Simulated assay, not measured.
Amino acid sequence: MNLVVNGDAESGPGGTAEPVPSVTGWTVGQGAPALVGYAVGGGYPTPSDPGPAQRGSRFFSGGNSPRTALVQDVTLPATGRTGHPAVDAGDVRFTASAWLGGYATQEDGARLSVEFRDAQGTPLALAVLGPVTAAERKSATGLVERKVGAAVPPGARTARLLLVFTRSGSGTSNDGYADAISLTLEPTGGTNAGGRS
């Protein structure tokens, strides 16, 4: 089960290229994000451009701010096969994934970081996805999947997601894009398999 709330930009206000004051499930830490519809046009990603195969109707963008940041704190489950006892034994693995991208040859981009913290809020481990460069997109407008997985650090109780969009050059639009953001946990069957990306 995906622990991220509204990782697909489908909930709350939006659907155009206009910035929104708030984003369901996220705290706007900086800037003015937009939840852009794939059907908006005007150079934004369309349903036929590179992106998630099972995409919804909208994606995140940096809006019109040079730097836009969204934050979400996720509470890890306390019970079950991925609960606290299994985490503390090193028997739970996480997978973080996101589709990240931008516009044509521009280097505007999006970066997702996932920071695991203990009960006191002390950082224990950090995973970072992106940004995706124009070269990695082959200078095409669209989104590319990025994924990382590793053992959840023992003692972790929460994960802080930070989604940052950065405008690299001039202009009024921050064309960093993101969609299909996911954080999942799975038991490792009593063996710590280590990390892979």
Rank of each mutant, 00 (worst) to 15 (best):
M1C: 09
M1T: 14
V4E: 05
D8K: 09
E10W: 01
G12P: 05
P13D: 14
P13F: 09
G15C: 05
T16S: 10
P19G: 06
P19T: 07
V20E: 02
S22D: 13
G29T: 03
A32N: 13
A32G: 12
G37V: 04
G37T: 02
A39F: 03
A39L: 09
G42S: 03
G43V: 01
Y44N: 15
Y44W: 14
T46W: 08
Q54Y: 00
S57I: 11
F60R: 13
G62R: 00
N64D: 11
S65G: 05
P66D: 01
A69S: 14
A78N: 12
R81V: 06
G83V: 06
H84G: 03
P85I: 10
A86D: 06
D91T: 09
F94R: 00
W99P: 00
Y103L: 13
Y103D: 13
A104P: 05
T105N: 11
T105S: 12
G109L: 01
G109H: 09
R111C: 07
R111D: 14
V114D: 11
R117K: 10
A119H: 13
P123N: 10
V128K: 13
V132I: 10
T133G: 15
A135W: 15
E136K: 03
A140M: 10
G142L: 08
G142T: 04
E145K: 15
R146N: 05
A150S: 09
P153K: 02
P154Y: 14
P154C: 01
R157L: 00
A159T: 04
R160D: 08
L162R: 07
T166S: 14
S168I: 12
G169P: 08
G171D: 03
D175T: 11
A180T: 14
A180Q: 08
I181K: 07
N192D: 15
A193I: 13
G195L: 10
